[in-house]
Design a protein around this nucleic acid. Sequence first.
DNA 1: CCACTAATGCAAAAGCTTCTCATTTCTATA
DNA 2: TATAGAAATGAGAAGCTTTTGCATTAGTGG
Lengths: 139, 139
Amino acid sequence: MSQQELKKAGLKATVPRLKILKILEAKQGKHMRAEDVYKCLLASDEDIGLATVYRVLTQFEQAGLVVRHHFDGGHSVFELDQGEHHDHMLCVKCGRVDEFVDDIIEERQKAIAEQGGYKITDHSLHIYGVCPACQKNAA
Amino acid sequence: MSQQELKKAGLKATVPRLKILKILEAKQGKHMRAEDVYKCLLASDEDIGLATVYRVLTQFEQAGLVVRHHFDGGHSVFELDQGEHHDHMLCVKCGRVDEFVDDIIEERQKAIAEQGGYKITDHSLHIYGVCPACQKNAA
DNA sequence: CCACTAATGCAAAAGCTTCTCATTTCTATA
DNA sequence: TATAGAAATGAGAAGCTTTTGCATTAGTGG
């Protein structure tokens, strides 16, 4: 019951928050922009403002329920936090996004942060390139 | 002579481009937002529009003269391309930015891209954390 | 030196995100 | 269960960075 999740996170169990959480669950694994979430709400005949979507997503982020990724172009995407950190590989042609995890890189990052005296809070690694499909199309 | 550099890059040697290039050279090693460059121009009594700054920086980027980094918060910073790729470690408290290079990570990225069938064009790694100074302040 | 094309400045617009504030909705409490 | 107070919401305005349209100006090759 998601109502519990919200309360546990210190958030009131309001209608908008429940709906948005449900959408994120439904789209698990996808990267949703605030606008995308908003469109889903409209499609479900929910009367929830875009401003609220932004507010709720930010709260979810702070509560640790979702992760926000800052992609190039100045927009953010959100997805449910599945516990495991992952990085992204993006196609510059079609916008496709692949996820990956690499223990060696994770480890090196920790080492580098430590070396610089930083207490690491987060990190993001984006690889930009041309995906297999787009390479074929170009050829 | 920077006039040569511009021509070699296929760009007309115009006043705004020369001025902006000079500023970037003066601020070498720093990360400049378009706005920062613009302020420098104003401070030098140059009558160059912000729109031109953006245009020129983008051209410089395409010409390979400068590198653009997309930092969190939806804004870009620019710096002269010094030939060597480097990644960034940012303090979430004070905004300090440190640069680093790690061959192991570079290598792993290439391997991961290859594995996914991607033809890599670029990549960015940002480590967010609290810098030594800010840790001290907090304590 | 001149004509042609490219570049510039300004202001307006665009895109994403945040803020304001009056109104509504939760929730703890009686 | 009713209710007061705090927190959340919706709608639109505003904020910021970045881009664009267009008339004007400035390089450049010949």
